[in-house]
Amino acid sequence: MVGEGGLPGGDPVAVVRQFGEQVPHSRDLGMQVLAVEDDQVRMRLVPQPWLLDDDDAADLCSSVLYSLADSAAGLAVYAATRTLTPIATLDLRMDYLRPAAGDRAVVALARCLRFTEDVALVHCEIRSEGQTQPVATGTVNFMRNTQGRRFQAADEGDQRA
């Protein structure tokens, strides 16, 4: 059991997954939370025809990778801090290394490198599944403990009673 402001319940994977998969945009793009370990989160996205870059190309649109990086990075902050207080993206930089094939799932691995009460820094690498070289990397700065309500997990009432 965690203390005040911590992750409700005992299973961080379940809570982060529940949180991550409640986000409408993440759901719209079909993002799945694969794993939550220590300060890392792994997310997966299966390309769809409406996520492609151009009618004449078979690559994923870079902006889909951008969204995946932003989502995975935000969840990595929660994984590392074990706290579901609101965060806000301050700055996100993506570098696109090579095209991401539109017929292959992509997997993002986000790791929170450092956090304080105020900020958190996350690095994210995205690979096409089965490939060793990343298709994109991202670096994200978050502001922590921004205004707004904490996320309430479905079972939080029971856990915190």
Binding site: V23, H25, S63, Y66, S67, D70, S71, P86, F151
Partner: peptide, 24 residues
């Protein structure tokens, strides 16, 4: 549209949605 939301509590658009708008 509702599927563009990234924070259901505020509510606010997903940072990636703004990323797509900027990139495109």
């Amino acid at each position: 549209r509702e599927p563009l939301i990234g924070n259901i509590l505020l509510p606010a658009l997903h940072g990636g949605v703004l990323g797509a708008l900027v990139e495109i």
